[in-house]
Amino acid sequence: MYGKKVKLRLLFLSFIFIIVALSVFLILKSLEENVVYFISPTEIKNLPEIDNKKRIRVGGMVKKETIQLNQNKISFVITDFKNDINVTYSGAVPNLFAEGKGVVAEGYLNDRSFFDAKKILAKHDENYMPPEVKEALEANK
């Protein structure tokens, strides 16, 4: 019916198609698994349910007078000026981590008011403010 060449080409094309489909599937699947959502303390308060296995980022300002230390733990409060969340962390902090400055903590929620941070990020810009905080600040004005 078809020549050998056509068959070969069809085979090749379907092979490519399968590979492309497979890699797209792979990419999308791990995208779903590895996405880290960025949430503000207020949004956490309004979450319908808490998933303490899902890695998230919480952004806001480090509330003044809330940093507490011992030898291997740091705890502080992230605020968006409407709601607060308590964060505990052990590890290294970035340069710009300080009270009254913007911060993004990545980790897991214990419950609606306690967050277990695995990583602390801060921007390399002294005037940086997480976008949510900016919005919240403007809304509070």
Partner: peptide, 14 residues
């Protein structure tokens, strides 16, 4: 209007 980030695990895994 969702803010997400994709970290090293995504790239490493793929």
């Amino acid at each position: 209007n969702e803010k997400i980030s994709i970290g090293p695990p995504f790239f490493n895994k793929l």
